[in-house]
Simulated assay, not measured.
Amino acid sequence: MTITDKDRDILARTLWGEARGESLVGQIAVAWTIRNRVNDGKTNSWWGEGYAGVCQKPYQFSCWNRNDPNYPYLSGAKQIPFRELAQAQIAADQVIAGKVPDPTGGATHYYATSIKAPAWVKGAKETSRLGHHVFFKDVP
């Protein structure tokens, strides 16, 4: 698969929107969750195609919802602080290039511990907890 500059940018912005309060390792974990969806093998699947397609598919990552407070930053209407975006870009680049192993154990889903566990966790396999996120695979 060809990775475009748009894919890299959208992935980094998604990491900022979903995990800006996390360490680099925490952002790498979220990036791997996205990569696991990209590489799921379901061409034209529900996930979307490529990094940009997966990140911006409606209802997958709330930071891209137009009513989310992060959206003005992700859309470019407001500027993301340079250092915060730079860390997200590092995480995105490392995961896209396969320079770091998957710390999530193949997760395709996660939720932030700041919210109540979503209904979809029932029957899913928890794979890891990193920072303020809990990761899952085999989500029914």
Rank of each mutant, 00 (worst) to 15 (best):
D68M: 03
K122S: 12
D68F: 00
Q79R: 13
Y73T: 04
W46F: 10
D93Y: 06
V95N: 12
I34E: 12
I90D: 13
L130Y: 08
A19D: 04
G26A: 10
E49Q: 12
N36Y: 02
S62W: 00
F61D: 04
P72H: 07
K122A: 15
Q89E: 15
R83S: 14
G50Y: 06
R35S: 14
A92T: 03
A31N: 14
I90K: 15
F135R: 10
D102Y: 07
A88F: 07
P140M: 11
H133Q: 12
G98F: 04
L11R: 03
E84K: 12
A86P: 05
P69R: 02
N65P: 05
E126F: 04
Y51S: 09
M1Q: 12
V54Q: 01
A29P: 04
R129E: 10
T14F: 10
S75N: 14
A119Q: 13
S128Q: 15
P58H: 02
N39T: 15
P69C: 03
G123L: 10
D68K: 00
N67P: 02
L24T: 04
G76N: 09
E49N: 13
V95W: 10
G41P: 04
V139G: 03
K125Y: 08
A112W: 10
K125S: 13
C55A: 14
G123I: 11
A88Y: 02
G26D: 06
F61Y: 15
L130T: 12
K42E: 13
D40H: 09
C63G: 07
R35M: 09
L11T: 10
V38Q: 01
P72Y: 01
A31H: 14
I96W: 05
I3P: 01
V139Q: 09
S62F: 04
I10H: 08
K137G: 01
W120R: 06
T33Q: 12
D9E: 15
C63K: 08
G21I: 02
V30I: 13
A77K: 13
Q60R: 13
L24K: 08
R83Y: 09
G26S: 09
A12H: 00
S45M: 02
D5A: 14
P69V: 00
A91P: 01
A112F: 09
K57W: 03
I80H: 05
Q60L: 11
